[in-house]
Amino acid sequence: MKRLAIILALLIAAPPAIACETFTTGDITVEQVWSRASIGTQRPGVLYMMIRNEGAADDALISISTPIAEKPMLHETTVEDGIASMPHAMRVPVPAGQTVELRPGGYHGMLMGLTEALEEGASFPVTLTLEEAGDLTVLAEVLSMRAEAPECDAAQ
């Protein structure tokens, strides 16, 4: 009985959030893949994640594709002298032994031409194409419009 209570407590304390799942191919591990809820489909959605390269060779994220958007692209927000702009990023370098974050205010996926509204709590697949590691399909969780990051325990 006591054990059951502990198990239940653990289950309640750590709901199985998709945003906290990890996806691996070769030396590349991807986690905390998330997006923000959208209002309808008119405006572009966003995609964030953490990519860890445990190998000895540099890699790079070169494209993303997803059934949820007609034109998903990689962008980088840069803030220079207080001016934010968002140039198209051809590739997101993932150097050997390092973790690269696609996060608010930095690299991010821009999901143009949403095929359906992104509802909080939903999830959708995204195929990442890496220069060396090849394709890896991950699941992105749609968080609240006000979210700034997923809440995962013991990330890393």
């Binding site: 923000r36 405006r43 572009p44 959605g45 966003v46 962008h75 927000t77 803030v79 934010a84 968002m86 608010p104 205010g105 991010h108 821009m110 999901l111 419009m145 006000r146 979210a147 700034e148």
Partner: peptide
């Protein structure tokens, strides 16, 4: 409003 990254992040902070 078409800004996917900086604007939602800042408005989320304002909220």
């Amino acid at each position: 409003t078409n800004c996917p990254d900086v604007c939602p992040t800042t408005l989320a902070e304002v909220a």
